[in-house]
């Protein structure tokens, strides 16, 4: 059974904390959901319960980073990005402090909590804040490497952490490198670029496309900032068309980042699959992906329309 990103995050953090006594964790009363509870159990003296007060939590983390700590600030993505936005910008990013901000239950697939708990704009917010590295891993295998990499990296990071188990995307022998994309499926007709759990939906979409004789490439983009320009340009030049798929609003996230690269370096026809500038609602993950135009079927249709050079609009399944 594959491991959910949140579980891999929680377990890896404990492993790293055994080697690195500078790691501290700050929680806003969500430790069991975010899985920093594992850390709290093993390192109670380094676990700081901050209560339901995210703005102060972000600032306290900044102060701890000044003292050489590596604070992991853990809450839901909606609160990390929106509630504490000014603290992230001024106390963490402007000061270029070594704070790791962990936004759990990212995107629309957030454990049937509905719109208030679905982070659909967190990547856009964090990407727009100078100095912040933004990472959106796909599965547990990758997450373990991501957590190691961001501890090794000295600077502010926003890490997206999904709640549930999604099909594994990481290839055998995968080696995550901060800022680098990874090709998880070869293909020549079109490239599907995914981030987070949506990369698994891209892989699913390739099976649908195969039935129509379309050989789609899948490029997984775990680091959303800095974005891997070289990999995007290569995909555009080699396959012509691009489809992005993200667990986020189509504004400000992966689709925007890829569009920026294509427009400046390698203009190509592209379509963006993601949340179409709206808030979500309650429901199961598969139902939400289907209703909000983010299912493998939607990705496949976007790819077909790119190939046909047609305008694509979301069809309700």
């Amino acid at each position: 059974m594959a491991e959910a990103v949140r579980d891999a995050f929680g377990h890896t953090l404990v492993q790293l904390a055994r080697e690195n006594s500078d790691i501290v964790v700050l929680d806003a009363d969500l430790a069991t959901s975010t899985r920093v509870v594992y850390f709290a159990q093993e390192f109670p003296e380094r676990f700081f319960q901050m209560g339901v007060a995210e703005q102060n939590m972000m600032g306290v983390a900044a102060g701890m980073a000044l003292m050489g700590k590596i604070p992991f600030v853990s809450t839901f993505g909606v609160f990390a990005s929106r509630r504490a936005c000014d603290q992230v910008a001024i106390s963490v990013a402007h000061c270029r402090l070594n704070v790791k901000i962990v936004g759990a239950y990212s995107g629309i697939v957030s454990g049937n909590n509905g719109a208030t708990h679905q982070a659909v704009e967190d990547v856009g917010i964090m990407r727009a804040i100078p100095h912040i590295v933004v990472v959106d891993p796909s599965d547990g295998v990758e997450t373990e490497q991501v957590v190691r990499a961001i501890v090794a990296y000295d600077g502010p990071v926003y890490l997206r952490v999904t709640r549930d188990v999604w099909p594994r995307v990481s290839p055998e022998g995968y080696n995550f490198v901060l800022g680098k994309a990874v090709q998880v499926r070869e293909g020549v007709d079109v490239t599907l670029i995914g981030s987070g759990m949506m990369s698994s939906q891209c892989v699913e979409a390739t099976h649908i496309l195969s039935r129509s004789g379309i050989d789609a490439r899948v490029l997984h983009m775990p680091t959303l900032k800095p974005i891997d320009v070289e990999a995007i340009v290569k995909a555009a030049e080699e396959t012509g068309g691009i489809v992005t798929a993200e667990n986020h609003n189509i504004y400000g996230g992966l689709g925007s980042a890829v569009a920026e690269v294509l427009a400046e370096h390698a203009p190509a026809l592209m379509k963006r699959v993601g949340i179409q500038d709206c808030y979500g609602e309650c429901g199961g993950n598969a139902e939400l992906l289907c209703k909000y135009g983010m299912s493998p079927q939607h990705i496949a249709e976007a790819a077909q329309s790119v190939l046909q050079g047609r305008n694509y609009s979301v069809r309700r399944l």
Partner: peptide
């Protein structure tokens, strides 16, 4: 103030 508290706790 929050940062000062963070320094104090660390």
């Amino acid at each position: 103030l929050s940062a000062a508290l963070g320094i104090a706790l660390a």
